[in-house]
Simulated assay, not measured.
Amino acid sequence: MTPEELAERHPRLFHVTEPGAHEGIRRHGLLSTRALLDRFETPAAERERLLTTRRPEAVPLHHPEHGTAVLNDNLPLSEKALRTCLDDGLTPADWLGILNGKVFFWADEAGLQRLLGARMNRGRQREVLVFDTRRLAEAHIDSLCLSPINSGATLRRAARRGLATFSRAKDYRYPQWRKLRGRSDRILEVTVDHAVPQAADFLLDVRLAP
């Protein structure tokens, strides 16, 4: 899938974070949890815990040079539920490690609004960063993946997930990708491995929600 083909269907990508986070993202780029822990020089034992276990609340990180950053919580995810829906021999710790190595974007406004309207987010202020899909995809096409599910949630009937959940966008045309799982799917998440260092170059808008 070319950047143009992805942008034709999803011209904007949306990243949800803590209020005020855009200032640090302009300085450091948009970093995965793994990349943030590296940048903030988190001690090894704490780093391993944060990468492989569920975070029931947001976790602030502090650094004398870089200031403060906040790791998003994993409230929609249950390690117990993960044990019943993971394929390929993956453990919950494995899955959390995969998620923590990626930067996540919602592919459309509908998915974004479902997240913001979820019961656990009601009354909670969030910052939504809006990105230009084509320009971001052009810069990161080699590490850009697509997911048909909310990979960080196991609410209600948890979708099955495994090594094939994240598909390299450049390896498929859109019709091929839709048939990967044996049925017609739509893109729910777009991810980039590790980091988007020049995220400010692709940023179109910063919103506060609700």
Rank of each mutant, 00 (worst) to 15 (best):
61 L>I: 03
52 T>R: 05
63 H>E: 12
74 N>K: 03
78 S>K: 12
56 P>Q: 07
72 N>E: 01
72 N>Y: 00
53 T>L: 13
64 P>S: 13
57 E>H: 14
60 P>Q: 08
69 A>D: 05
74 N>R: 01
61 L>P: 08
76 P>G: 00
58 A>I: 01
55 R>G: 03
70 V>E: 03
81 A>L: 05
80 K>G: 01
64 P>M: 15
51 L>W: 02
50 L>P: 06
67 G>E: 06
56 P>R: 10
71 L>S: 09
55 R>W: 07
73 D>H: 15
81 A>T: 09
78 S>H: 04
79 E>R: 05
53 T>R: 11
53 T>H: 14
80 K>E: 07
80 K>Y: 05
57 E>G: 14
75 L>W: 05
72 N>C: 12
52 T>A: 02
64 P>T: 03
63 H>D: 09
60 P>V: 02
74 N>G: 03
56 P>T: 10
50 L>I: 10
63 H>V: 13
52 T>Y: 07
66 H>Q: 05
60 P>T: 12
55 R>P: 04
58 A>S: 13
72 N>M: 09
73 D>T: 08
67 G>H: 08
73 D>I: 10
67 G>I: 11
56 P>W: 05
75 L>T: 03
53 T>F: 11
76 P>Q: 03
52 T>I: 09
61 L>N: 09
80 K>P: 00
67 G>N: 07
51 L>H: 00
55 R>Y: 04
82 L>F: 09
61 L>Q: 04
62 H>T: 10
76 P>A: 02
56 P>D: 05
75 L>H: 01
68 T>L: 05
60 P>D: 04
80 K>D: 07
52 T>L: 05
75 L>C: 07
66 H>K: 13
55 R>S: 06
57 E>M: 15
70 V>A: 02
79 E>D: 13
73 D>E: 15
51 L>E: 02
80 K>W: 06
53 T>N: 09
79 E>F: 02
74 N>E: 09
51 L>M: 12
54 R>F: 01
78 S>Q: 06
54 R>C: 03
64 P>R: 13
63 H>K: 13
76 P>K: 06
70 V>I: 10
67 G>F: 06
67 G>Q: 07
66 H>N: 10
54 R>M: 13
76 P>R: 07
58 A>G: 03
69 A>C: 11
71 L>N: 02
58 A>Q: 14
50 L>H: 13
59 V>N: 00
78 S>F: 12
63 H>N: 14
54 R>Y: 09
52 T>D: 00
81 A>M: 00
67 G>T: 11
77 L>E: 01
56 P>I: 07
54 R>P: 04
51 L>P: 03
68 T>F: 03
62 H>L: 02
67 G>M: 08
71 L>I: 01
81 A>C: 09
66 H>P: 08
54 R>E: 14
76 P>H: 04
57 E>Y: 14
74 N>D: 11
63 H>P: 15
62 H>E: 12
81 A>K: 15
56 P>Y: 02
59 V>F: 10
